[in-house]
Simulated scan of single mutants.
Amino acid sequence: MHTDERLVIAYPFDPAPTLDLEPEYGPILLGDSLVRIAMPVGGQAWLATAHAHVKQVLSDPRFSRAAATTPETPRLSPEMIPASSIMAQDPPEHTRLRRVIAGAFTSRRIELLRSRVRDIVDDLLDGMEQAGGPADLNTHLSVPLPLIVICELLGVPDQDRERFTALAEKLTSRELSGDEIARARTDMEERLRLLIADRTLARGEDLLSDMLDAQQEADRLSEAELVNLVVALLVGGRGSPSVFLSSSVFTLLQNPDQWQLLCEDPTLVPSAVEELLRYVPIGVAGGFVRVALEDVSVGDTLVRAGEAVVPAMIAANRDGRVFEEPDRLDITRERCPHLGFGHGAHHCVGGPLARLQAQVALDALVRRYPRLSLAAGERDTDWETGRVVRGLASLRVVW
């Protein structure tokens, strides 16, 4: 078994903002071993990059999320996820929490939202046209769309959305101190408790009301679990989908042959979204850390009990053993078993909603603006820095 720990690589590899997968992943993907990395917080871990290895780490119950939430656990951000969070649980506790919200995110239920999402997209693009170009697509579409959708789904009032957005930004920061992030989480939790108290008195036709009903059923949901479920939905439901949509449009416009193909045949939008989920790296590093509960072999590496492993889905999605020409964007790719939404028990519950929003938005863009292009100088655009996701600070376009 390979257990050589002499070479330790600083991780994430390159702090420079980019949508290109860092070249350091290339030689690692060619092997069958994990590599040792030094994380920004908590010390060393193993890095899994191969598609098969990442799937194993994400699905093998011997790799625990609950065991990875101690102050000593290697991690990307100073934030300590609360033990009551769904992101910090293993089955069966994780299964119990996920069941409370899973019904709202089935493909069938999400498909019922398509018409409403289409109306939101059309309204946002109408506003962009009225403002005139060049226009920042982030301001007019990529940022507000996921925020409006997740807040409507949960039943968050309009007047609370700006504050929740600001707090969510802090929770995904890599530059704030642990104390600052903890204060932001406390602030968000307190505001959510006020919202929950209001909804307790007057139910609505929304997911939060459904969750409150579930809380009243014996052993289904504690108050802390309810609050942290809503936090996870708000943070995850607006941040990553926004970055993905903006990054996807940027990527397509940098590959004009693919953009033109999509404009000529909008029926390719669903396959384009799947390819973009594979191709576009959203995180600046791998996914949530897992800790081995016992000795586990991954490829030819022996991970000892208690050691941390980072599953890098962004690298696994470029594994040439799974994807032909993995570094080429191909929206007609027929086989695309990407890990953009993860795998296993923690597979992203909001995946169908994020997929739907991207499909509707891209369909509207290619139909309305077949001549869409980056505004002058946008190839040297500004990037957001210091976050756990990589994204454009703005995306100025003309049409």
Score class of each variant (00 low, 15 high):
residue 5 E to F: 10
residue 8 V to F: 09
residue 15 P to K: 03
residue 18 T to N: 09
residue 21 L to S: 06
residue 23 P to A: 14
residue 25 Y to G: 04
residue 26 G to E: 14
residue 26 G to F: 10
residue 34 L to I: 07
residue 38 A to F: 06
residue 41 V to N: 04
residue 51 H to I: 10
residue 53 H to C: 13
residue 62 R to C: 10
residue 65 R to K: 13
residue 66 A to C: 07
residue 70 T to V: 08
residue 71 P to R: 01
residue 74 P to R: 02
residue 75 R to N: 11
residue 79 E to H: 14
residue 80 M to L: 15
residue 83 A to H: 11
residue 85 S to A: 09
residue 86 I to R: 03
residue 88 A to Q: 03
residue 95 T to S: 15
residue 99 R to N: 11
residue 106 T to K: 00
residue 108 R to C: 13
residue 110 I to Q: 03
residue 111 E to D: 14
residue 112 L to W: 06
residue 112 L to E: 13
residue 120 I to D: 00
residue 122 D to R: 02
residue 129 E to F: 06
residue 133 G to E: 11
residue 138 N to K: 06
residue 140 H to R: 06
residue 140 H to L: 03
residue 145 L to K: 03
residue 146 P to K: 06
residue 163 R to T: 15
residue 168 A to F: 08
residue 169 E to T: 14
residue 169 E to P: 07
residue 176 L to N: 05
residue 180 E to R: 02
residue 184 A to F: 05
residue 204 G to E: 03
residue 206 D to V: 08
residue 208 L to R: 04
residue 214 A to K: 15
residue 219 D to W: 06
residue 219 D to A: 15
residue 219 D to P: 02
residue 230 V to C: 07
residue 231 V to S: 04
residue 238 R to D: 09
residue 245 L to T: 02
residue 257 D to V: 14
residue 257 D to F: 08
residue 263 C to F: 05
residue 266 P to V: 12
residue 284 V to K: 01
residue 285 A to Y: 02
residue 285 A to F: 01
residue 294 E to T: 14
residue 303 V to Y: 00
residue 305 A to R: 09
residue 306 G to Q: 09
residue 310 V to M: 04
residue 311 P to V: 03
residue 314 I to K: 00
residue 315 A to W: 02
residue 317 N to D: 15
residue 321 R to M: 09
residue 322 V to P: 06
residue 324 E to G: 12
residue 325 E to W: 01
residue 329 L to I: 10
residue 330 D to H: 13
residue 338 H to C: 08
residue 342 G to H: 08
residue 348 C to Q: 04
residue 349 V to W: 02
residue 352 P to Y: 10
residue 352 P to F: 11
residue 354 A to T: 14
residue 354 A to M: 09
residue 355 R to N: 11
residue 357 Q to C: 07
residue 359 Q to F: 01
residue 359 Q to S: 11
residue 364 A to S: 12
residue 364 A to E: 05
residue 365 L to E: 02
residue 372 L to C: 07
residue 382 D to I: 10
residue 383 W to T: 11
residue 383 W to C: 11
residue 392 L to R: 01
residue 399 W to D: 02
